[in-house]
């Protein structure tokens, strides 16, 4: 961490800063998977950044490529081919050796997964699983255990000291997700990638887990990349939102602006599908059709077959990126720049 980082962090309070110093800079990341007969592009030329302490949401339907993108940032999936650049704190992660990459995981970047029921080893105690992140780095058993306990306390796991030696099956879903969070947070990473962390939980537990995440990310000024299909949980959490459709980011903006003035017809569709307390509608709108599979994407703008504002050009020319007056980065022919 350089001197200017400390200065920036010290002088400008988090809520005010518009563009914090970049922690993660993804440039033209493409993800391909080789199937038996063809190379399929799962994610196409995605670029985005995450600042220190910034909370960014990556939103999209299932199959849009958001989880693949998330795993690519930590190079977790060895079956896909990654191209482009993923700069993390000045290092290009894609050019690191496997052991250098392993050293980044858990220490600089942590990840939480969708299903807390299947994310834990049923045969290892909670304490050992949380402490494992530290044990891998050669921290002594006793210190690792103490820090595991501290994190579990921080995550408000009741009677954490007694439960270090419990096994996952003795925990409820919400408690297990806290354990999974603790495994990701105990190494004190700068970036937490949360892949649908609350999808498998019921609504009230969802809220509590998100509140905890919110609290911890503020306290530790931890950057969070929240991956979700649920616009409802994005609103209260994220500083910035990226909307992904069929392997591309189609819109990106500050969260408040994106919710107030969604630009891309797909973003609008997503927002209209979410029930809102402040607006009464007769019927929630849904986007007709289903997202395309990566192997058979439509030509031009991949969203055009489902778009209610599609024009002639949309089926033939892929829209480039445009910046709208509201500050959104958007890929849509409605906003000029082709």
């Amino acid at each position: 961490m350089g001197v200017d980082t400390i200065l920036t962090d010290g002088i400008i309070p988090a809520p005010v800063r518009r563009r914090p110093e970049a922690l993660l800079q993804v440039e033209q990341l493409s993800i391909d998977i080789a199937t038996r007969d063809a190379n399929v592009r799962l994610v196409d030329n995605v670029s985005f950044g995450i600042g220190r302490g910034e909370r960014v949401a990556l939103v999209g339907e299932s199959g849009s490529g958001k989880s693949v993108t998330a795993q690519a940032l930590m190079r977790l999936n060895s079956r896909v081919k990654l191209s482009g650049r993923v700069n993390f704190d000045g290092k290009d992660l894609l050019s690191l050796s496997p052991s250098q990459m392993a050293a980044m995981r858990g220490q600089r970047m942590g990840m939480v997964f969708q299903d807390p029921m299947s994310s834990l080893d049923p045969l290892m105690t909670i304490g050992d699983q949380v402490a494992e992140t530290l044990r891998i780095r050669g921290i002594s058993k006793r210190n690792a255990r103490q820090r595991a306990l501290d994190v579990l306390d921080e995550l408000k796991v009741e009677r954490a000291a007694e439960r270090l030696d419990s096994f996952p099956h003795e925990f409820s879903g919400g408690m297990r997700q806290r354990v999974v969070l603790a495994m990701a947070l105990v190494g004190e990473p700068d970036l937490l990638i949360a892949d649908e962390p609350t999808t498998a939980l019921d609504v009230r537990v969802q809220e509590r887990v998100l509140d905890l995440l919110d609290e911890i990310s503020r306290r530790r000024s931890l950057a969070v990349l929240l991956i979700t299909h649920d616009m409802g949980i994005v609103a209260g959490f994220a500083d910035r939102v990226m909307v992904m459709y069929s392997g591309r980011i189609v819109e990106e903006n500050e969260a408040t602006l994106l919710f107030a003035e969604p630009q891309h017809p797909y973003t609008r569709g997503l927002l209209e599908a979410v029930p809102r307390a402040d607006v009464t509608v007769d019927r929630l709108r849904s986007i007709p059709g289903a997202p395309p599979v990566p192997a058979a994407r439509p030509s031009g703008c991949t969203f055009h077959p489902r778009c209610d504002r599609a024009m002639a050009i949309c089926s033939s020319v892929e829209p480039g990126e445009a910046i709208t007056p509201s500050g959104a980065r958007v890929r849509c022919h409605l906003y000029g720049a082709g």
């Binding site: 858990g106 990840m111 939480v112 299947s118 992140t133 999974v180 495994m183 190494g187």
Partner: peptide
């Protein structure tokens, strides 16, 4: 699924 978090721990 159990192994992804373990891998993510490094």
């Amino acid at each position: 699924d159990m192994m992804l978090p373990v891998r993510a721990k490094g």
